[in-house]
Nucleic acid binder design. Sequence first.
DNA 1: GTAATTGCAAAAGATTTGCCCCATT
DNA 2: AATGGGGCAAATCTTTTGCAATTAC
Lengths: 141, 141
Amino acid sequence: MKKTRNTRQRGVILGILQETREHPTAEKIYQNARQIIPNISLGTVYRNLNFLQNQGLVREIHSCYGSSTRFDGILAPHAHFHCVRCGILFDIALPQGFEQFQLNQMDMASTITSIDLNIMGECAKCAPCSSFTTEDQGSTH
Amino acid sequence: MKKTRNTRQRGVILGILQETREHPTAEKIYQNARQIIPNISLGTVYRNLNFLQNQGLVREIHSCYGSSTRFDGILAPHAHFHCVRCGILFDIALPQGFEQFQLNQMDMASTITSIDLNIMGECAKCAPCSSFTTEDQGSTH
DNA sequence: GTAATTGCAAAAGATTTGCCCCATT
DNA sequence: AATGGGGCAAATCTTTTGCAATTAC
């Protein structure tokens, strides 16, 4: 196997993901990284996100809300809540007895790489005003 | 609100999704639909998938494997297993006590629209040969 | 010095949209 | 007849990739 190098770009990208709980998109990570390495390129961000994912240091979060993949650098197991109105995405605890569930799936799979649990709904902030904005999810906060 | 029409295209697309458990992509649905309506367009498929999703008749499934969204026309609650090698995607039962978990989340959200539980791993077919294909997920079956 | 990694720009996919015509109601 | 929806093609958006230059080891 080929050896990897510790580039500044890679370190900065991983750092950004480990220090936030905002689950940024590649574009957002790029914007943050540019404040530290002004001429970093978006391609480098994507390449490193894929690399870090293969190393198991980072994981992808997919959602019906928004068309970009979001990333998570917090490795402790947890689930995600997605607000279908404002798009906010935050961490929630896994349900109790989840390890048991994982065990039960072992007859269908020999290896479980990861478990993604995503709850979609309206967050506490968006719920009260939801009856007024029927057409578009045009809420901002 | 504006009234909707029952077009042949819409019916065929919904029918395809309700009769399969293969969770096809938009492209795949398009191919299937063309066997019934030869000149249906891909744009129409996408437009109707969005429409049917808004109606709650269909839902999206996202995965780290593959770059296209896949769709599910089976409304009964269930989870999904994704094979990280061959990309196969199949239904699995939700863990016991999941309703309880849902209730526990109600303080973070006033409404839960949907729950997506995705298990990633190697399926029974792919597991034995996994040690031979290390670089690329080039398995087919 | 060597090869992994970067920046840049072009390419590749996936999905959406504008426009005009057709078909459902 | 009115207008929602379809077909087609162009546009948009996200992500990947080729290549020459750079940099970590």
